[in-house]
């Protein structure tokens, strides 16, 4: 899958307080923006959480959404991670119909994708795949013929690439202030 140019990855550092997720999510819907995926988790500091939000927007509305997000009191810092300047990963759990006759094939695919079988039943298997979003897409396509029972993805999380000189988040393109 090629990179969708309308998809922007925002890395949002927020105060770890009740209601922060609501504030952020509600702002998106209120201003008419679509969230493709959203992942929240703790950071190295207890006080803060990090949200990785993939937004479907053009450049100019993106500028507005970033500015509006910045106005939320618990939002501390927002950076956009450009696709070529970040390391992106996503996790998927997928349960497939896998009776004994096809298990071999599934296991083989699992190995090729460096994935892991995490649960096995009489007629199904659950597999964990981690990696870039398009790897997860490819895996899904390849196992679709077996029959997908259930599938769940975490949404992307991302970190800026460790450049040789300096680690930095690309500032979101905004009017100079």
């Amino acid at each position: 899958m090629s990179v969708n140019p309308r998809h922007h990855i925002l890395s949002v550092l927020v105060e770890n307080k009740p209601g922060v997720l609501t504030r952020v999510a509600a702002l998106f819907s209120r201003r008419g923006f679509n969230i493709v995926s959203l992942a929240v988790g703790p950071t190295e500091e207890d006080r803060f959480s990090r949200m990785t939000i993939v937004v479907d927007a053009d450049e100019s509305p993106l500028e507005q959404i970033v500015k509006q997000l910045n106005k939320l009191i618990p939002v501390i810092k927002i950076g956009e991670i450009a696709h070529d300047e970040g390391v992106e990963r996503e996790l998927m759990l997928i349960t497939l119909k896998a009776t004994s006759d096809v298990r071999g094939q599934v296991t083989e695919l699992t190995a090729i994708f460096d994935a892991k079988i995490v649960d096995v039943g009489h007629e199904a298997m659950t597999i964990m795949v981690a990696g870039e979003a398009d790897k997860l897409d490819s895996f899904t396509e390849l196992v679709r013929p077996f029959g997908i029972v259930e599938q769940q993805r975490t949404g992307r999380i991302a970190m800026p690439k460790l450049a040789r000189q300096q680690v930095k988040l690309r500032a979101v393109k905004t009017a100079r202030t």
Binding site: K67, K71, T174
Partner: peptide
């Protein structure tokens, strides 16, 4: 004083927050 007002409606030639 509100950065979000800059360019919200009309794109300014010189925005000053």
């Amino acid at each position: 004083i509100d950065p979000a007002e800059q360019g919200k409606v009309r794109r300014p030639d010189v925005p000053i927050v």
